[in-house]
Design a protein around this nucleic acid. Structure first.
Lengths: 199, 199
DNA sequence: TTAAAGGTTTACCGATCGGTTCACAATGTC
DNA sequence: GACATTGTGAACCGATCGGTAAACCTTTAA
């Protein structure tokens, strides 16, 4: 039972959903674009919603892995990684098929907080937030929670603005703002090497 | 020329589109929820897309008027108004029917930059940006363009984060960040009588 | 040899999609 | 009274929606 047609389906469905949206993408279109029969689809997923959730799960995994890895590649220190995030965002925005964030779009199409798709989108954002908070703590932030929330605002704002496309370097703008916010939250000499267990 | 059925239609369609999305809202549903006959709709608007564009036009007008007026009510000075924007956002987020920004959702459902709906959404954001840039200039910002772009990032990020709902005061977070960014961009003595906003 | 298991194709279902047609009723305004 | 404007209800269009049904093909493994 190695990675079969099921994973292939989810992978391809992910792209189509990202490009064209969820409601606008019919199952027939997925059949046409993936080459996988409708019968097979409905053997793996009982409803379209289940397929969407699987696609979002895969996207969350792929995106977070990519983001975190790139951040670590770019900078060794926690503070550097926080700043690196915006450089990575810039790389993302520059990709020709960039179309805003899949989870922002999903939460837009399924706006009720109780809806599974909305909830899963929120969870993705929450996971990134906690990662940033950990980095902020390691970077010696006075209030890691506040700093992480502020950086999240810049990140989400940069994504939306990049997609709306009336500013041409929203990642750069966010980076500049992030510098200011980090500096204002990190005590001068407390930077670097915050022991996991504080004194 | 008092409010005709046409305006009534656009007004009601606006609400339905905002709540349920664009693709997910069929014309039959609009007939049911607005009480206006399908025939009349298609006499005023030749396609669903034209109706959507009219609804977005109305939304842009209503929202910007409301935002700008509230900002002026809260604070007399340009700097105060910039900060007041985030207080106004907080009021917006607290409304029970808040469902993120209509234009972010629209650009998510119509992601191609050339699409009229996408373009009109971008224009709405651009208009707000220029307003903020004017205020930033009046507030004595060293680089009004940069400051306005940064504040826009906070604003869009706050909207998205408020809708995703894993942080409970994204407007407050944005306000705190905005203070830092404004202070770092406005020269010490160039500032004119800042009467800071409460909260 | 046999037989699931996983895949395919094709056709089909009722419902809804965006959009049209037609006959007709209420509303002025001259 | 005449006439256009603006609206109505209901039936209808072909296409597409999410989802099923039935028959067959192919691989894997007991």
């Amino acid at each position: 039972m190695r990675p079969t047609k099921r994973d292939e389906l989810v992978q391809k469905a992910l792209r189509v959903f990202y490009r064209h949206g969820f409601h606008a993408t019919g199952m027939d279109r997925l059949v046409a674009e993936t080459g996988i029969s409708k019968t097979s689809m409905y053997k793996h997923f009982r409803t379209k919603e289940e397929l969407i959730l699987a696609a979002l799960r895969l996207r969350d995994e792929q995106f977070r892995n990519w983001l975190y890895r790139r951040m670590e590649e770019i900078a060794p220190t926690p503070r550097g990684q926080l700043l690196a995030m915006f450089q990575v965002l810039g790389e993302w925005f520059a990709q020709p098929d960039f179309q805003s964030c899949m989870f922002i779009k999903a939460s837009g199409e399924y706006p009720e907080p109780g809806h599974p798709i909305h909830a899963q989108s929120a969870e993705h954002k929450r996971l990134i937030f906690t990662h940033l908070r950990d980095l902020a703590r390691q970077a010696g932030a006075r209030d890691p929670d506040v700093l992480a929330r502020q950086l999240v605002l810049l990140k989400e704002g940069a994504i939306v603005t990049a997609h709306l496309g009336y500013a041409d370097d929203s990642a750069g703008d966010a980076l500049a703002a992030a510098r200011v916010l980090i500096d204002s939250n990190v005590a001068e000499n407390a930077e670097e090497v915050a022991s996991p267990v504080s004194v």
